[in-house]
Design a protein around this nucleic acid. Structure first.
Length: 802
DNA sequence: CCACGCTTGATTTTT
DNA sequence: TCAAGCGTGG
């Protein structure tokens, strides 16, 4: 590793170190604790900032950037700051701006790994055999491409789905393996054809002048490895490197960082090995565990003072994570109060759990047990797997509790958005074959497999794009009547739109609307009567609105391929429901952690597939979950749960055993045979009364339990008793607040036989009215009881975008 | 080309 | 249970 270029870096740094000292009292340093301050001030050489949950990691990181700038140690364009998500990048940009008082122009190299790689790759595309205007494939395009290649190999795609290969290739790319360097041990993958098809796939991408997400990293690494001059240039350029969430880096990202930091070694990595929860996606905890070996002489700073959670919550979280081996080790502490203990409660089944949590939320909303009221926005339910959300959605819909599901398909991943984008792509570059393929028969134009095949043949044999190939097919009248006319119209449309893009006669927003209109795409959804259609039209409207923020269509497409997050919806206060993974980095005053049962959490699959490693990652997930809570954390489990339609019983999660007694309060669950089983059962499961509790055993394995597995348990007297008991709110007074929200006019405005529309269930007919609840027979979703204000009269949603 | 019924299999998800 | 994806019949 050559150090020759270091002199200019050094020249700049020496006189500045004095300024750095002076800056130690700079206002932006105020409020930093000694550890944070150390992490901010150690500007030269490798630094590992081990930042536990809620210890002010982002604050330290952004202050460090500000310190680099304010002391004149580095100019904005000399700092490379990488994050994983756009959200994190945005947040960091904002905070740096705020600290600097907006005085600095933006930092061009603050962004996600991918966004930064796109920039680099556009500059040096030719070194990777690409043109500078290469396109970035989304997963859909990627899969379509792979399917074609797989089909050409006569592979039984039932046993070997293309999706699986996509996953395999993705994994290889995460490890920075090119088709040539995939180790022999992996050659058996995908029926021994994996590597071969991987190579074909890469070749195909090259001819398409396209890359997938993994390639962004891989190509840049390749360029750095084969063109030392380029690497040297960037090493000189990026004099200070900062990396957020280092525990989430995969091998490719690690190599990329090592290459760039290899000269000056001014790299500061921030992360928390205890929050590494993306191993299944290629993240290597090893990267952070190995940091000191990789960068000898590294300064390691531990941020251990937690500013988020109460003492009890912290204690519970620490107790759980302590069971993991091979940690770098941190001891979180807080100066704040102990607060409420983490509450633990067992339930008979998942539905009761949802009912109880719903009641609790309502109680907390008005204030319960002497606590201040908490708004819905400040509460979250964090689940291990998204199918757990259903029970909560169902319950909240019935009681009319506003909720918001976070996660799910991202805005730009939705079908209608991708379709629309494909049209835009064609307008900008008519030769985008993947875009053409995507929309050639969307909306339906009578162009099926046969027609598409003809177009492909025409295109390939003449060495032109599909768009041009289609032109040839039309000229030769290669396909039948209806399709022919439609295809001609499509080709002419693309010609016209692309001419308009170039002429810039219309604004790009007008143009976009025109494209969606003339292509018949808007009409396609207007004519669609499925419950999703109105939402999709709404999304298209939003897409067009998003265009306004950009100069032109090209600029939009350029950015959008990397920006996949969607903004939280409206202003109404809602409880958040999300997976534990989605909750990383967030915090809420009150958190519910349901479904702590062995097999569900920790997930059986995780343990089967990855053994102890898998279990430890699950445990980290538990740690992440608990540490999201600021003041109230409630963990729960159910003795019975319907899994794939079958009733199954489960034992409380082993993580529950690991919760330190001192920080936990065991609640008595409502109902069931005097209400005693939960406390006793849990006491035993927590090791408070010996390993095997008769009560718990009875709960898990008795006849009673077996009988519960029969569907008719719901008619049994015991069940009814349970239901009526649990209907009495256990810890909370029944409250009036709900009624205040209900719009009585809305209630009375529906009657039997009315057609209504529901956001989630679609269209339906009102079969009965009971107070504020409506009995609705939905066209698609079956009959449900729903609170009246959650539906609107059918037709009033029928307004049309544009 | 489409609508329907059947089989199958089912975490976590960003870019 | 339930949704996606496939194959068949119109």
């Amino acid at each position: 590793m050559s150090d020759s270029y270091e002199d200019d870096a050094f020249e700049a740094a020496v006189p500045l170190s004095r300024r750095a000292m002076q800056a130690a009292s700079a206002p932006y340093m105020d409020g930093l604790n000694p550890a944070q301050r150390e992490a901010v001030e150690a500007l030269e050489g490798p630094v590992l900032m081990l930042a536990g949950a809620g210890t002010g990691k982002t604050k330290a990181l952004t202050t460090r950037i500000v310190h680099l700038l304010a002391t004149g140690t580095a100019r904005p364009n000399e700092i490379l700051a990488v994050t994983f998500t756009n959200k994190a990048a945005r947040e960091m940009k904002n905070r740096v701006g705020r600290l600097m008082g907006e005085a600095v122009e933006g930092m061009p190299w603050l962004g996600t790994f991918h966004a930064i790689c796109v920039k680099l790759l556009r500059r040096h595309a030719e070194l990777a055999g690409l043109k500078t205007n290469f396109t970035i494939l989304d997963t859909d395009d990627q899969l379509r491409l792979l399917k074609q290649l797989v089909a050409a190999h006569n592979i039984d795609d039932k046993r070997w789905p293309a999706r699986m290969l996509a996953g395999i290739i993705d994994g290889w790319k995460n490890k920075a393996w090119t088709p040539e360097t995939v180790p022999t041990a992996e050659h058996g993958a995908y029926d021994h054809k994996g590597v071969e098809i991987y190579a074909e796939y890469q070749a195909r991408l090259k001819t398409l002048n396209a890359v997938d997400f993994g390639d962004l990293l891989l190509h840049v690494i390749g360029i750095f490895q084969t063109h030392e001059d380029v690497l040297e240039q960037y090493r000189r350029w990026f004099r200070y490197i900062l990396v957020d969430e280092y525990q989430d880096t995969n091998v490719a990202q690690y190599l990329w960082l090592r290459l760039l930091a290899g000269g000056h070694k001014n790299i500061c990595c921030v992360g928390d090995d205890d929050q590494s929860i993306y191993g299944w996606r290629g993240a290597e905890v090893g990267n952070i565990l190995r940091f000191e070996e990789d960068f000898p002489g590294a300064v390691v700073v531990r941020l251990e003072q937690n500013y988020r959670s109460t003492g009890h919550i912290l204690g519970a979280a620490s107790g759980v994570i302590a069971a993991n081996k091979g940690r770098l080790g941190k001891t979180l502490f807080t100066d704040g109060e102990d607060g409420e203990k983490v509450r633990l409660i067992g339930h008979w089944d998942g539905e009761e759990e949802a009912r109880w949590i719903g009641d609790e939320i309502e109680a907390m909303q008005v204030g319960t047990r002497g606590l201040d009221p908490i708004s819905l926005d400040q509460m979250a339910i964090l689940v291990r797997a998204s199918h757990q959300m259903r029970a909560f959605e169902d319950r909240f819909l019935t009681i009319g509790l506003p909720y918001r599901v976070i996660g799910g398909p991202r805005f730009y991943e939705r079908m209608e958005i991708r379709d629309a984008m494909a049209y835009f792509r064609l307008a900008v570059s008519p030769d985008d074959d993947l875009a053409f393929e995507r929309i050639v028969n969307t909306p339906k134009r009578g162009l099926g497999d046969k027609a598409v095949q003809k177009i492909q043949i025409a295109a390939r044999s003449n060495g032109v794009s599909l768009h041009e190939g289609a032109r040839l097919v039309v000229a030769m009248k290669g396909i039948g009547g209806k399709g022919l006319a439609a295809l001609r119209e499509l080709i002419e449309g693309i010609d016209r739109w692309s001419a308009q893009v170039r002429s810039e006669a219309d604004t790009h927003v007008e143009l976009a609307e025109m494209i969606l209109d003339e292509s018949g795409y808007t009409g396609h959804w207007q004519n669609d009567k499925t419950p999703e259609a109105p939402g999709r039209l709404e999304n298209l409207k939003e897409l067009v609105k998003a265009l306004e923020g950009f100069e032109n269509l090209q600029g939009f497409l350029e950015h959008v391929s990397l920006i996949m997050d969607n903004e939280a919806d409206g202003a109404e206060e809602k409880v958040s429901i999300m997976t534990l993974h989605a909750a990383k980095g967030l915090e809420f005053p009150a958190v519910f952690l349901p479904g702590w049962e062995d097999g569900l959490f920790p997930s059986q699959r995780s343990m089967d597939e990855s053994g102890l490693k898998g279990l430890e990652e699950e445990r980290r997930l538990a740690y992440v979950g608990i540490t999201r809570a600021e003041r109230l954390c409630t963990i729960s489990f159910a003795a019975n749960r319907r899994v794939y339609g079958q009733w199954q019983s489960a034992l409380p999660s082993r993580f529950i055993d690991e919760l330190p007694e001192d920080h936990v309060e065991v609640l008595t669950p409502p109902g069931l045979y005097g209400g005693g089983y939960g406390a006793a059962g849990m006491a035993s499961s927590m090791g408070m009364a010996g390993a095997a509790s008769p009560v718990l055993n009875a709960m898990a394995g008795s006849d009673l339990h077996a009988k519960a597995a029969e569907a008719n348990v719901y008619n049994s007297p015991g069940w009814r008793r349970l239901q009526s008991r649990s209907a009495e709110r256990p810890m909370s007074q029944p409250k009036e607040s709900r009624n205040m929200v209900i719009d009585l006019d809305a209630v009375s405005s529906f009657g039997e036989g009315d057609r209504v529309f529901h956001q989630k269930f679609g269209y339906g007919e009102v079969m009965g009215v009971e107070g504020d609840k409506l009995d609705i027979e939905f066209d698609k979703a079956g009959s449900k009881k729903v609170v009246a204000r959650f539906v609107i009269a059918a037709g009033s949603e029928g307004d049309v975008p544009f």
